[in-house]
Design a protein around this nucleic acid. Structure first.
Length: 299
DNA sequence: CGAATTTGACCAGCGC
DNA sequence: GCGCTGGTCAAATTCG
């Protein structure tokens, strides 16, 4: 079945053929509800050159998700929830209350006579709204990658057709409703799929310099860079709808390179593009040096 | 002892 | 309406 475990299939498809080390964030126009989602790959063992053959690979019809990008808008990783059963292409709604939930929760806490009935009614009255999501895959042995923000785990669930559970995290900052889900690909256990949901309403408590405090330039550090992508993606002043760009011209989400005229060269250094154009505060503080080992920067 | 995690229960949404 | 699944809650437990 085509839709079963598409993430895993995608991982397999990529990991089997992708050269050596890579960093990639791509926009797909998914066949599942027509939603856009962003898919990022990182090989944490070291980022090296990135060849055009990679792009040819992406365009192959065998890809689980048709690569042609139509437009860039809301990012969703709902694809991650695709059911395994055939004929059931829909997925559970993204239970994203985020900020609203946070506020209602505060109100609830003031009402110390919170009962189950109250909870029920509150939940029923909640309007489920889809938050922008950003999903990426990371090749890492560590499930929960350090990304510069502090997270509190609030749940873990077994995932259907996967031996690996899915963990749910919420940003520990009181006013911030950002959530993320972390799970391993069932097809490739070395791949960690992280889905960010919502946008931080605060600067990173660890970044920009903190990432270098005791954190070695390993998967954790790289995750930090990717983790910031969704925050920028959701900045309201970016009108993604007007930024329809050719798919492979847009390896990074538009907000990450929207003002850069990057064209595909025979080879380029993806991590350089990513870190320099994606996160201005990183660039401004020279965090690249903290994140990317010198040997990799010169790759 | 406070913070973070674990884990079973509960709820919502969806397909049949 | 029922069952399944994903997502969340919150008490219990563990950790620092």
């Amino acid at each position: 079945m085509e839709t079963e475990n598409s993430i895993g299939a995608a991982v397999t498809a990529f990991s089997d053929q992708i050269p050596t080390n890579f960093a990639l964030s791509s926009i797909f126009d998914t066949p599942f509800g027509g939603e856009k989602w962003s898919l990022g790959f990182m090989d944490l063992l070291g980022v090296q050159d990135f060849t055009p053959s990679m792009f040819d690979l992406l365009q192959q019809p065998s890809m689980p998700s048709p690569p042609p990008i139509v437009s860039v808008g809301e990012y969703s990783s709902d694809i991650l929830n695709l059911p395994a059963t055939p004929n059931s292409s829909s997925i559970s709604s993204s239970s994203t209350e985020a900020a609203n939930d946070e506020q209602s929760k505060a109100v609830e806490e003031e009402e110390q006579e919170k009962t189950k009935n109250q909870l029920k009614s509150n939940k029923k009255n909640k309007k489920r709204q889809k938050e922008p999501r950003f999903a990426f895959m990371t090749k890492s042995e560590v499930d929960h990658l350090e990304d510069g923000y502090r997270w509190r785990k609030y749940g873990q669930k077994a995932v259907k057709n996967s031996p690996f559970p899915r963990s749910y995290y919420r940003c520990t900052t009181a006013t911030c409703g950002v959530k993320k889900r972390v799970e391993r690909s069932s097809d490739d256990p070395t791949i960690v799929v992280t889905t960010y949901e919502g946008q931080h309403t605060h600067p990173s408590p660890v970044m920009p310099r903190g990432i270098s405090t005791g954190i070695s330039p390993d998967s954790s550090s790289y995750a930090a860079a990717f983790a910031m992508a969704p925050m920028q993606l959701t900045q309201p002043h970016h009108d993604f709808q007007e930024q329809q760009q050719p798919y492979f011209h847009n390896l990074l989400p538009p907000s990450l390179n929207y003002n850069s005229s990057v064209s595909l060269a025979p080879t380029f250094v993806p991590e350089r593009r990513f870190f320099t154009s994606a996160t201005s505060f990183i660039r401004d503080h020279g965090l690249l040096q903290d994140i990317v080992p010198s040997d990799m920067r010169s790759a």
